[in-house]
Design a protein around this nucleic acid. Structure first.
Lengths: 162, 162
DNA sequence: TATTGTTATACTCTATAACTATA
DNA sequence: TATAGTTATAGAGTATAACAATA
């Protein structure tokens, strides 16, 4: 039996959940960014596109809140996507302080391809484990995360990067 | 059956593995940092302490490499731990370019308490799921991470933050 | 000539404060 | 008076470059 003072036990990174979560996250993010790079976007851009593809016309502030970032951060992100012709901004006729942000036609095409690439990246990430374990992983993580943000699920709340 | 073009399906963050991993990681890191704060250290400091508690006398560079950070980053981290009396530096007699970094007596006490706090934080993080699911989560993450860094396990390679 | 620790600097990412135009 | 978008600025975090001491 190892006691609490056994140095070796404490030093094995692969027993530390924080290490495992951090590195799993980093690896998936790297795979996702690499898969999306040919489309000219990264995982964070893809998160914004997912919000914009949701259907309802959306203001910048709403997108920022969904992504859990400051509204000032949203400006540069949308600037870049607009320069690339992926999104378009137009004033909201009902409240001219607001910008309505929408996917362009090209943006819809980019998003459709990005979803395929994103799914491929997830698939490669999960290739090391069998499908049952992957499904169980998703369920477990969901339980852990939803406990942390109770009542936040699908609707509002911060959205993912990739 | 939802088709690939169903907007709602794409918009649910809790179906996206990247979202789940990122937020699980953030929540655990927050719990860990909060648990360690009374000891005057954070999760990253704890990662360094775990390396230093490993037994062998260690140079700054070795610690930095284990943690996967630049050696210049290590300086400020150790400066802070040294100011707190948790670690001590002394020249390596065999190679005076090197600093041997060791836990002080107080550092060993801090580390012992930190391990307890850290385990408590992991326990609270995992409280939402049953022990079998927690064990399965660890196994699955290990498989995913070890595939990413083959041949790196226990020995060398970057070590965790918390 | 290479390596360790150090310092100074730059870069990334993000948040805070202040300005404008609208409400 | 408050809000949406914008801009400028500052802070955390980390990496790169250059330097002194040592090998």
């Amino acid at each position: 039996m190892a006691t609490v003072s056994t140095p070796a036990a404490a030093a094995d990174p692969h027993d530390v959940l924080g290490y495992l979560l951090k590195h799993a996250n980093q690896r998936l993010a790297a795979l996702t960014d690499a898969a999306l790079a040919p489309l000219g976007i990264d995982g964070k851009d893809f998160g914004a596109l997912r919000v914009l593809a949701g259907g309802e016309p959306t203001s910048q502030l709403q997108v920022a809140q969904r992504l859990g970032v400051d509204r000032t951060t949203m400006v540069a992100l949308l600037d870049a996507l607009e320069r690339k012709g992926i999104v378009a901004r137009r004033p909201d006729p009902a409240d001219r302080r607001r910008n309505i942000v929408e996917l362009t036609e090209q943006g819809h095409e980019t998003f459709a391809r990005a979803r395929v690439e994103h799914a491929g990246a997830e698939g490669r990430f999960l290739a090391a484990i069998d499908p049952d374990a992957a499904a169980q992983l998703r369920r477990t993580l969901r339980a852990l995360v939803e406990r942390a943000e109770p009542g936040t699920p699908p609707g509002p709340g911060p959205a993912p990067r990739g």
